[in-house]
Amino acid sequence: MLKVSVYRYNPETDEAPYMQDYEIDTAGKDLMVLDVLELLKAQDASLSYRRSCREGVCGSDGMNINGKNGLACIKPLSECVKGGKLILRPLPGLPVIRDLVIDMSQFYAQYEKIQPYLVNNEPAPAIERLQSPEEREKLDGLYECILCACCSTACPSFWWNPDKFIGPAGLLQAYRFLVDSRDTDTENRLAKLDDPFSVFRCHGIQNCVAVCPKGLNPTKAIGHIRNMLLRSAT
């Protein structure tokens, strides 16, 4: 039997959040955390969490699992359970709507702030714009982001200033467009990032790198953005 402790909060009925304990029979299998949640949900339908693809590509089920942010659907129990206990909390730093569901609007607002779309003011050719494999390779490790918010909600700078600091996820995408050979808006993009908060609240502690379920490295991308700002200033 696996002991599971889950953060519960329903704004309509609970004055304050609390941890609820369950016991689950995993039949000795190394289930994913999401499988455990599905078993719990069958037992107690009032438990709320987000889930969709269940294979780690949609980014719905980011949560804090035994103290570390991750995706429930690709986190096997063997990698997270300590002392026979699984502890599930919502991602930290953003408001909780209910149980494991957080209000991600600030996270999305930061994403929208960086103009997350290609800008190219030259007329488009009749076929695709050409891009060499080397130029395309620069987007690897950037475009794969699934917007699960595991990184940004593991970042103290984002906890303190979620309205001003873009956060690792947004900055990873900022760099994805800065480095795309097809984008012509580099100067304007950089100008919008050169304030004391947007980029420079990153102090390089790399919590984002430690938790990213897709193995991406936002800190490195932020370093590249700083270098681009430096180069454009000189």
């Binding site: 990032l193 050169d194 304030d195 004391p196 908060f197 420079f200 700083r226 700002l229």
Partner: peptide
């Protein structure tokens, strides 16, 4: 207010300093 009491003119200049 934050800009008035910050030292440099931009995030980059603060960072370089």
């Amino acid at each position: 207010i934050t800009n008035v009491t910050s030292f440099g003119r931009s995030g980059l200049s603060d960072w370089i300093l």
